[in-house]
């Protein structure tokens, strides 16, 4: 082996060892431990734990109606965000055009994403407050006082209110990703389309969208993951209430672990959410590929 080959081999080994060790320590081991714990009834404090087979999995599926209510709430986040992804893509295409103030608007739309999520949740708690809340005051000023509702406590609307806060927070991030994707499309491709007589919609649908497939795939995955792991907004704004009306899968799991001292069941739920995310992602990928007529 030549000196260069040896050094290259050393470099590869050194470069891989640390990430692999970190991966084993912080991803593989905790995940294996999580799986192990999901077969126990450990309460988080006892010095020993008892293996109970698949009882947690059975109880989770057949005896946890509030968990499934929470999962339904996650789906509301998922679909609200999904609708907005299309709008975000249109906004990104618009921001890629040269017009005065485009940079400012890009900055403005990205701003919510860099603000701390806890701060956003607190701010919106007061925004939607029934006493002196800015939203209700704005409705009154616009003569729409009749539309004032119990934004954070009416089980029929609370999840949509929370999902709208989530959209406000994450849309800018998606728009910036879309812009980066669109900017990576070679100009000559778009110019050729213009020469061939393609209108704006045809350029968008036949050139821009297929060219940023990777970005779209990532954002769709991020939507699945984000919607199913939604936590901070409902936790701070409503504590998942009233009852479990605005609880989410993660919020419910944390309550099971810490409020009801059932770390075994909470681990089972964490395993379940992983499985659900993977399943929904692959299903979504298939559906999107089918819609685009792409064989993946």
């Amino acid at each position: 082996m030549s000196a260069i080959s040896r050094k290259r081999a050393q470099f590869i080994v050194v470069s891989l060892v640390l990430p692999v060790i970190l991966l084993l320590m912080f991803v593989v081991y905790p995940a294996a431990d999580l799986l192990n714990m999901s077969f126990t009834n450990w309460n988080g404090l006892d010095l020993q734990k008892t293996y109970i087979g698949l009882s947690n999995y059975r109880d989770m599926i057949f005896s946890s109606p509030d968990l499934w209510l929470s999962l339904r709430n996650n789906l509301i986040y998922f679909f609200v965000h999904l609708v907005f992804i299309f709008i975000e893509l249109l906004l990104a295409a618009m921001f890629c055009a040269k017009f005065k103030g485009a940079g400012f608007f890009k900055w403005l739309i990205f701003l919510p994403y860099i603000i701390n999520g806890v701060a956003i949740s607190y701010a919106f708690s007061y925004f939607f407050s029934p006493v002196g809340g800015a939203f209700n005051e704005a409705l009154r000023l616009l003569g729409l006082g009749g539309f004032i509702g119990n934004w954070l406590s009416d089980p029929k609307i609370v999840n949509y209110v929370l999902a709208s806060v989530s959209v406000w927070r994450y849309s800018g991030y998606h728009v910036i990703l879309f812009i980066a994707g669109i900017k990576s499309i070679p100009n000559d491709v778009l110019e050729a389309a213009v020469v061939d007589g393609a209108n704006a919609f045809q350029q968008f649908w036949h050139i821009i969208v297929p060219s940023i497939t990777l970005v779209i795939d990532f954002i769709l995955f991020d939507n699945v993951r984000g919607a199913l792991q939604q936590f901070d907004i409902p936790f701070i704004m409503t504590s998942g209430g009233p009852g479990y009306a605005s609880s989410t899968f993660t919020l419910y799991t944390i309550n099971i672990a810490f409020k009801f001292n059932n770390f075994g069941m909470a681990s089972t739920m964490a395993i379940a959410i992983m499985a659900i995310i993977i399943a929904v992602y692959f299903l979504q990928t298939k559906v999107v590929a089918g819609l685009r007529g792409v064989k993946k």
């Binding site: 991966l23 912080f26 991803v27 593989v28 081991y29 905790p30 995940a31 431990d33 999580l34 714990m37 126990t40 450990w42 988080g44 006892d46 010095l47 020993q48 734990k49 995955f221 993951r225 792991q229 672990a257 770390f263 909470a266 681990s267 964490a270 959410i273 992983m274 995310i277 993977i278 992602y281």
Partner: peptide
């Protein structure tokens, strides 16, 4: 890669709640 990412996002809770081992 997807599975690894999900594990890293979801399973960190397990590290925090490392059991009575």
């Amino acid at each position: 890669l997807c599975i690894a990412i999900i594990f890293s996002l979801v399973a960190c809770g397990a590290a925090a709640s490392n059991p009575a081992t």
